[in-house]
Design a protein around this nucleic acid. Sequence first.
DNA 1: GTCCTTGCAAAGCTTTTGCATCGCT
DNA 2: AGCGATGCAAAAGCTTTGCAAGGAC
Lengths: 134, 134
Amino acid sequence: MTDDAELKKAGLKVTLPRLRILELLEEDQAHLSAEDIYRKLIDAGEEVGLATVYRVLTQFEQAGICIRHNFEEGHAVYELTPSDHHDHMVCLDTGDVIEFTDDVIEERQKILATEHGYEIIDHSMVLYVKPIKK
Amino acid sequence: MTDDAELKKAGLKVTLPRLRILELLEEDQAHLSAEDIYRKLIDAGEEVGLATVYRVLTQFEQAGICIRHNFEEGHAVYELTPSDHHDHMVCLDTGDVIEFTDDVIEERQKILATEHGYEIIDHSMVLYVKPIKK
DNA sequence: GTCCTTGCAAAGCTTTTGCATCGCT
DNA sequence: AGCGATGCAAAAGCTTTGCAAGGAC
């Protein structure tokens, strides 16, 4: 689906800020904060307000286009909604975000929730890591 | 160890606000926000400033007395540092926090980090759940 | 033309900090 | 007495909102 169609499907008019933000999110496994996106757009010569970035990201999230993470960094980061669920490792030295999945863990989570009488609506698992030193 | 001794060991003077906050955290598996604690103290007739609550919680965290969580609620919550590590389920209907552990998951996390060339410094796993309807 | 979207500025929230006062040791 | 701790108010950082102007359909 084109970006254009994706926006229309979400009931959002196709505007320049929305297209640009969607493009940025589509770049290789991006995990960007509102500020990151704002800076990239300004640096690229686009005229856009930070408030618009926040509004668009909120709309994208409600439309299911992207999801919001609250890593322990003091600000939210956004990524395109992954087709395949995955979790994250955040490198404390570099800030790199690594995606991973593990079926064993997913399965255990379901079992544990059920044992407590709950069903999982969502979950977040973040490993804060550092590179192994030789 | 008494609360008194715990504070001294951390190099903190034994003051009323610190004792009261420590007591609140010790009440049954408390997961409290700074605001929660502030309200409870004010309602109990204590004279305390919100800034002090934040400062004390930060000191407690640095001293290893308590840990801070960023669930997706817009504010941090604190709990006494657990002797045994555990993760959390947060009930989206009631806000209840359920603690749990699972050795299988812990083990898989270590393996996954190692496979990516990292060692785990810390991790957070939160399941957002709802009660199973009959 | 209509209604949605935008940018700016102002406001909101949680958390932190400056500073004079107070209190533990 | 000395130095850390406190309370208040102000400030900081991220995010949201009000409003008039602009743009999509």
